[in-house]
Design a protein around this nucleic acid. Structure first.
Lengths: 293, 293
DNA sequence: AAAGTCTTGACACAACTTAGACAGTAGGCT
DNA sequence: AGCCTACTGTCTAAGTTGTGTCAAGACTTT
């Protein structure tokens, strides 16, 4: 899905990366990189990917890495100076997002994807970063606008990932949040993990009325409904019957419900904890159990 | 149904696209494009489709793509079968989304991107589809869950586009919605168009408190703030001073404000209509005006 | 008749190419 | 210190390519 078509002239690359055209040619001569396409007449035509690579390399050089090593590091796709752990990446991501620097955020994330499996990135970088920012907001160290910017940006990233890995063949699930819930990220992460686990997932966004969920589940043949709950909602106020009648299996994951798992049980649903990996593992036996009856 | 009828003389095309007639002829000679119909006497007659194509190509060139490559890219994106108009695509998209068939939706959208310039897809496919679904919801022909699914899916698409076209060099803008607004799509489309117009856009998601917007604008050096308003909010209830103090230029676009443009003026902001293309055009003189003072 | 458009050939200039040379820096060795 | 070497970024020079514009003479449209 990447744009490797060569379209940018060397002057354009010079302007965007700040690397002189002479230097770009010299690098190609010396290190064999980048090696852009050529026009029929022999002019260099750099691709979007080349631009990103050069930005990354320049970033490393600015950080003190020798040019030859930076190029080599990029070509090998490995960080020689020890792969940076998710915690570091999460901190850097937080810093970039608080500065509203989405270009750096993008670079950090793409590095994270290269270095770690998707699940790790989502939980230990993205999710952790969001938690830190949320904490900062509670302590008044982060403004609401900063928090909005960061969570909007990361939500977009997650949804991009979700859309990227298209439909599967497994049983169909519906994912939303409990009514009244405003925080969407938890449900989005759940949807992502479930889709990656092979389910066919329909993600509905936050705050879908329970009655509508039911008809939607019937229409799409959903075998289970997953609802996320982060805010400490008064669970008692939810209609019990609605939850019960929704679908063969009803599941609730999320932080808010952790205080009182029994409350969920009393509503006729199952509480599957706060960890999306746990959710995926515990859901399977539940589905089978429901299928046997 | 098609727009391929040749109706525009070369002078009209020159005026609309800003490309000189000599250049248009030269492109035809060199790249074989555009190849408009001819009058009985041999004069070129360009079609609406040609105009859109030229606008797209010009946009790519402005973005740094070499002219020959821009034309080539356009021609390669066109090699598919008979192009379906945006209206048809919007209808097919609506149908797919109501069926919660995101795979088909994805296919329709990627076809739309191939066949039409981005602006057209966003306005005449995505936006139009959302409007149809919204109308259906008001008429109880579409359930809330279906509406949620569709708007969540399309929001993800839009945000993916927004993230895809990274930062620019132009003046910095903040985009959010009026406080209390729940519909996010309008602001997202505005953010997308503004970024595409060359601005550096920070998208904050919906519903950011005005006070926080202000400090965020100062921190990021934003030269203007764009707020979308779709719901018929009681504008009078907003604090006037807050709006005034926000930034050099404060702008409000969206459907809700159309009823009473003066109300916006009284708050110290400018109302720039409901059309994102209009927004982009009207914003530039406002920015300059503010810059001169 | 005036204004606009056609084709073809030509032109100017910016941008690009290659190959080689050069100067500054950093580190190792005597 | 002094010297050597490797590395790096910049520069020069001569030739090629890409791109926009123009001119001349014939034809079309209004």
């Amino acid at each position: 899905m990447r744009n490797d078509l060569g379209v940018y002239t060397i002057a354009e690359v010079e302007e965007r990366t700040g690397l002189s055209s002479a230097l770009l040619r010299q690098w190609e001569r010396r290190y064999g990189f980048p090696r852009p396409e050529r026009s029929p007449g022999g002019h260099r035509l750099y691709s979007e990917t080349d631009l990103e690579a050069l930005a990354q390399i320049k970033h490393w050089i600015a950080g003190g890495v020798a040019p030859a090593q930076a190029v080599k590091r990029y070509l090998e796709g490995l960080t020689q100076e020890g792969p940076r752990p998710p915690e570091t990446l999460a901190l850097e991501l937080e810093e970039a997002l608080l500065r509203a620097d989405s270009e750096t955020a993008e670079r950090i994330l793409s590095e994270a994807y290269r270095l770690h499996p998707l699940e790790t990135v989502v939980i230990e970088v993205i999710s952790s970063c969001l938690r830190q920012i949320g904490d900062g907001w509670h302590l008044d160290r982060v403004t609401t606008a900063q928090e909005h910017f960061a969570s909007t940006y990361l939500r977009g990233t997650l949804q991009g990932l979700f859309n990227l890995m298209g439909g599967s063949l497994g049983p169909t699930l519906l994912v939303s949040t409990l009514p009244g819930e405003l925080h969407e990220i938890g449900s989005l992460i759940a949807a992502l993990f479930l889709r990656r686990a092979g389910y066919t997932v329909h993600y509905l966004g936050p705050n879908t009325p329970l009655a509508d969920l039911r008809s939607f589940a019937e229409r799409t043949g959903a075998r289970a409904i997953v609802l996320s709950a982060i805010q400490p909602i008064s669970l008692e106020s939810l209609p019990r019957l609605a939850l019960l009648g929704l679908a063969p299996v009803v599941v609730v994951g999320g932080r808010a419900a952790a205080d009182d798992p029994d409350a969920i049980k009393r509503l006729g649903a199952h509480y599957l904890g706060n960890d999306p990996r746990e959710l995926v593992e515990k859901l399977m036996p539940l589905m089978q159990e429901a299928g046997l009856r």
